[in-house]
Write a protein that binds this DNA or RNA. Structure first.
Lengths: 184, 184
DNA sequence: GCTTAACATGTAATTAATTACATGTATATA
DNA sequence: TATATACATGTAATTAATTACATGTTAAGC
């Protein structure tokens, strides 16, 4: 998708919290931010180079052990300004959700199609697992109130994600009932 | 995004209902399927060429008026088989929703951040409008029961989309209340 | 008869993103 | 001390998708 390069803002946002290496940034997509966005290191390293060329970040070289060099990136004033602008400017385009299962459903014409029940069951399994995972994240990450106070946005979107998955699971259950009735 | 080329299946799915031109296919993204997926004609025409090379579709040339040639595409047996396989094979990867607003929220640290209320209000306006639009689609497209019976999958996903937006709107309202309380 | 909007089909340039290729270091553990 | 895993950083090839470029026809309204 040729979209508006949101990765740059994620990098700026993460570096705004503390200096990180490219490797650290890559790892952060396995955890927190990874629940909401994905990126690989092959995308991150070139982006870091571009951001540094533009003056939004700088780096200092650290040496671990004998000779392993790592680059610790810092955000600059230009970078913090760009991050602030991105958050402030408004988000008037609703990102269309591209859900492959939903797309497949579009081409199912009859409520008696035997594949329908199979597909719904699979999605129910997947979304139930996802919901369990998200609830687990909620309790581990936001177990105490100080965490919520210090990362309020993160708390909100995790809570939003839990609600969204709950809705999805309930919809699947409800639809399965209706479908089974139609097929009986 | 280098993903699994879902456009080919949308084209096959639409051609499975009736023969269409590239222009017709492009237009269909302004309506029905457009609620759930997007594609431009610059993506559609090359894809049609590839599908024909692969033997999944064929075309016949129609002439409108004096000399305007249009290509009416038909699905082949290979195409219907490919479509059937895609629907049948299972959808084990949950597509991660990339919502820019959600992403921005991640970088809001404090519940007292004055931008929070502004951002939530904007999203409430957008998602309320979206919800109204979807409900309108529901009544116009699925006004009578025969439409539901003949396009059950489409009915399901539209109903799912209405529910999803309802949840989003409610979540925004609820969060706004909480945030205003925190900022007071 | 003129003009505009819709019909109709393509290609080119650019950007975003994934997968694969490529290399080397440090640390923990068996 | 060997070995596996995690740390660390890049590039190349490919695919997907958007935006822009490019051209011509038909039908409706004035």
């Amino acid at each position: 998708m040729a979209q508006k390069n949101k990765l740059q803002f994620i990098i700026l946002g993460l570096l705004n919290q503390r200096p990180l290496t490219g490797y650290d940034l890559t790892k952060s997509f396995d955890n927190e931010i990874g629940e909401f966005w994905q990126a690989q290191h092959s995308q991150i390293y070139p982006q870091l180079k571009r951001l540094e060329e533009q003056g939004a970040i700088t780096h200092e070289v650290m040496v671990s052990g004998e000779k392993l060099e790592k680059k610790l990136y810092h955000i600059t004033d230009l970078g913090t300004a760009r991050l602030r602008d991105w958050i402030t400017v408004g988000t008037p385009e609703l990102t269309a959700t591209k859900d492959e299962f939903i797309l497949k459903l579009y081409f199912i014409r009859k409520s008696t199609d035997p594949r329908l029940s199979v597909m719904l069951h699979e999605q129910l399994r997947l979304h139930t697992a996802k919901l369990t995972h998200l609830k687990g994240r909620m309790t581990t990450v936001f177990g105490d109130d100080q965490q919520i106070a210090d990362n309020y946005g993160h708390y909100l979107i995790l809570q939003h994600a839990v609600g969204r998955e709950s809705y999805y699971v309930n919809w699947l259950k409800q639809t399965l009932k209706t479908v089974k009735h139609a097929q009986a």
